[in-house]
Design a protein around this nucleic acid. Structure first.
Length: 423
RNA sequence: AGAGAGUUGGGUGAGUGGCUGAAACCAACAGUUUGCUAAACUGUCGUACGGGUUAUACUGUACCGGGGGUUCGAAUCCCCCACUCUCUGCCA
């Protein structure tokens, strides 16, 4: 969530930022934050003063009792009791104000970075660059949901039988392609200086709040009720939360982690015409990169991560474009996001395969993820993450773009991982 | 899953109602001294939110797993929850 200090110090920028996101009644919301914060401060000052007085009296009672002056002690007790009632009142007021302030801040999205274009929807996203020629296929080319049947490598019907829609079963070369991609992505990240982690794929409520999935996207995560645990929608959640409630040294930065996990999304209400096949699933595999950086370095890191993901797409010989998301299309918690989209020649449209974001201090504030620098003062770090990469749409575009009349070519970089070069 | 024991500052660990934000030791940092791949001594050494200051200084409050309660006063007593360890059970 946003820092009150930022809202106070950079009021105009924050207001402009919220407007860039088309956030309704931004001025009112910000004014209310500042008013509540003022109230929080003044009520704390009052409460603390009374508490100090009360503490002093309590100490005096101790020494009075020791000296056997029970009369004075009793009088002091009465006085203390009266104070206590007042303190309780101020205490409740203070707690209530803090609660109101927090829930208000939870509703405010992150402020977009200056480079983020204004806009309302995906239409307004800015194409930064595109790379690679779009392959032209013959008439009779097949979309991936036909190809996987033709070559019997991914089976949706079997998935329906054992689980339900959106839980495919990968078979034979299909399964091996999954494994090859995961290993390829992890090895590439290791070479780039990321440390591999294998986090749990169920997380508790605190973790959900830490990265901002809660309370925002409550219904989008699978939930194990008896144990009160959520299935992760992305490895971002467990990996970033490794650093929840952590005070780092400036010298520890940047932290670069990579992890492979399955991801689970209920995708409630988001199924439509063009989400056939692998385009949208309830369970899918993803390799995720996460960075924690010094605030001065986060945008350089974002560019690095973007370049890194593009490198993966180049090695996989996939045509792609990079979009800078507009204010209206960005995720709630992000300050700037690049989406990488791969062109799928059979579906004849762009498929989002990666999203790389800088959250600045938005997540760090909730996570209480800070670092201590030269000046011995602690400050919030910046968090970033990106898919590198999500498998299903990569698989879909490899299958579709590389299809030939008698098989499907596999990208060269995968041959050694796969143990075969075509399907 | 059953029974028992625990959870204190970066670490070890003392502390059963006021003199404890917390002993002692270790680690870390700064300085002094002797000097050589180190020792001795001295000092500093938690976090958050307030007040205060140009900024320091200074100062208030809270925090001894989390939440609640008793009390003038709680690390210390009571209740609930989470987690850890040991034994039994089960099991990849």
């Amino acid at each position: 969530m946003l820092l009150v200090q930022t809202i106070r110090d950079q009021y105009d920028q924050v207001l402009l930022g919220l407007k860039k996101r088309n956030f309704p009644q931004a001025t009112e919301a910000l004014q209310q934050v500042l008013a509540l914060d003022d109230l929080r401060k003044s009520s704390q000052t009052q409460r603390d003063q009374l508490q100090a007085e009360s503490n002093l009296i309590s100490k005096q009672i101790g020494s009075l009792m020791k000296e056997g002056k029970s009369l004075e002690a009793t009088a002091a007790k009465d006085q203390s009791s009266r104070l206590k009632a007042q303190i309780k009142e101020l205490e409740d007021q203070h707690a209530q104000v803090e609660e109101e302030l927090k829930s208000l801040l939870y509703l405010l999205p992150n402020v977009p970075y200056v480079a983020v274009p204004a806009g309302k929807s995906a239409e307004d996203n800015e194409e930064v660059l595109s790379h690679g020629a779009i392959p032209s296929l013959w008439e009779g080319k097949l979309p991936h949901w036909e190809l996987i049947k033709k070559y019997d490598i991914i089976d949706f019907d079997l998935g329906v039988k054992i689980t339900g829609a959106g839980f495919p079963v990968y078979k034979g070369k299909g399964a091996r392609l999954q494994r090859a991609l995961i290993n390829f992505f992890l090895d590439q990240a290791l070479a780039e200086g990321y440390m591999e982690v294998q986090p749990p794929i169920l997380v508790n409520e605190e973790s959900g709040y830490g990265t901002g999935q809660l309370p925002d996207k409550e219904g989008q995560m699978y939930f194990a009720k008896d144990d009160h645990l959520y299935l992760i929608p992305t490895a971002e959640v467990p990996i970033t939360n490794l650093y929840r409630d952590v005070l780092l040294n400036a010298t520890d930065l940047p932290i670069k982690n990579v992890g492979y996990t399955p991801c689970f999304r209920r995708e409630a209400g988001s199924w439509g015409a063009h989400v056939r096949g692998l385009n949208r699933l309830h369970q899918f595999d993803k390799v995720e990169i996460v960075q924690i950086t010094h605030p001065d370095q986060s945008y350089a890191a974002l560019e690095q991560m973007s370049a890194y993901v593009q490198g993966l797409l180049q090695k996989l010989e996939l045509p792609y474009r990079v979009l800078r998301l507009c204010g209206g299309d960005m995720g709630f918690t992000s300050a700037m996001t690049y989406d990488m989209e791969v062109y799928s020649a059979a579906q004849e449209r762009w498929l989002e395969v990666s999203s790389v974001s800088n959250f600045e201090t938005y997540q760090a504030n909730r996570l209480k993820l800070r670092f201590k620098g030269e000046d011995k003062k602690s400050q919030f770090a910046h968090t970033l993450n990106g898919s590198a990469l999500a498998l299903p749409r990569i698989v879909a575009s490899i299958l579709e773009n590389n299809q030939e009349r008698d098989g499907i070519r596999m990208p060269k970089v995968l041959h050694s991982y796969l143990g075969f070069d075509r399907i």
